[in-house]
């Protein structure tokens, strides 16, 4: 068995919306191992994306403990969590989240530049060429198709070779052909670099390609 990468222990997450208190995650326990591909499936509003946010350190649980390797990240400050994310996590969203006034090349290079890595632009070019976007370096996101934007987003997520790749419905906005290309890409990258992958989807076919499937319903694992 490969070592543990991240573990959730009795995690609860609540949101206060005015006077309404919504419990999104209700005492979840699970682990992801290194080089493991985990699919999280469930209906809309079941808490899949919330779990991803917690893994990325973008949200703090209301209670419970999240451990990344041997560090308890739930006790981290906001800045420390940001630093943690910078070093360890790569995220791919359904809606891409590219910076609109940056070119494709700049969007990808940004991920390395944040880590003060030299030759960020040339590395970004290499990965974009790998992903078949060699003629799209200077294009702004609005000038790219959905599939191309998602490839740029993937390039941005994997260029720094993070230990954990989080993908939130990465093919949700794409047609079948593009969805297939993107899915292949995510899995091949994860395998090639032996990085863990946590994939949130409601597409069972896609989930089947993972090592393990975890189903969420009403904020609990079923």
């Amino acid at each position: 068995m490969t070592p543990l990468l991240i573990s959730f222990s009795n995690i609860h997450l609540q949101y206060q919306n005015g006077t309404i208190l919504t419990e999104v995650i209700r005492g979840i326990d699970f682990v992801i191992h290194q080089n493991e591909r985990l699919a999280i499936v469930g209906k809309s509003g079941s808490g899949k994306t919330s779990l991803l946010m917690l893994m990325a350190g973008l949200e703090k649980p209301t209670s419970g403990q999240i451990k990344y390797q041997d560090q308890i990240i739930t006790s981290y400050t906001e800045d420390k969590l940001t630093d943690f994310r910078k070093k360890n996590i790569g995220i791919v969203f359904q809606s891409f989240y590219l910076i609109p006034n940056y070119t494709a090349l700049e969007n990808v290079a940004l991920s390395l530049e944040i880590n003060f890595q030299k030759n960020a632009l040339s590395l970004a070019k290499e990965i974009l060429i790998d992903l078949g976007l060699e003629d799209r370096f200077q294009h702004f996101p609005r000038q790219l198709s959905g599939g191309e934007q998602q490839r740029v987003a993937i390039a941005r997520a994997i260029i720094k070779k993070p230990e954990l790749i989080l993908a939130d419905e990465p093919t949700g906005n794409l047609d079948d052909e593009n969805a297939q290309v993107i899915t292949d890409l995510i899995f091949s990258v994860s395998k090639k670099y032996q990085k863990s992958l946590c994939l949130v989807t409601h597409d069972m076919d896609l989930a089947q390609r993972c090592d393990r499937i975890m189903k969420i319903e009403n904020g609990t694992i079923v």
């Binding site: 990325a56 973008l58 906001e78 800045d79 940001t82 630093d83 943690f84 994310r85 910078k86 070093k87 996590i89 995220i91 989240y97 590219l98 910076i99 609109p100 006034n101 940004l110 991920s111 944040i114 880590n115 941005r156």
Partner: peptide
């Protein structure tokens, strides 16, 4: 736009400072 840009920065690991 700024909120959006800062959101992406935050996701990628850029702190407030």
């Amino acid at each position: 736009n700024k909120i959006y840009q800062n959101l992406v920065f935050k996701i990628l690991g850029l702190n407030r400072m």
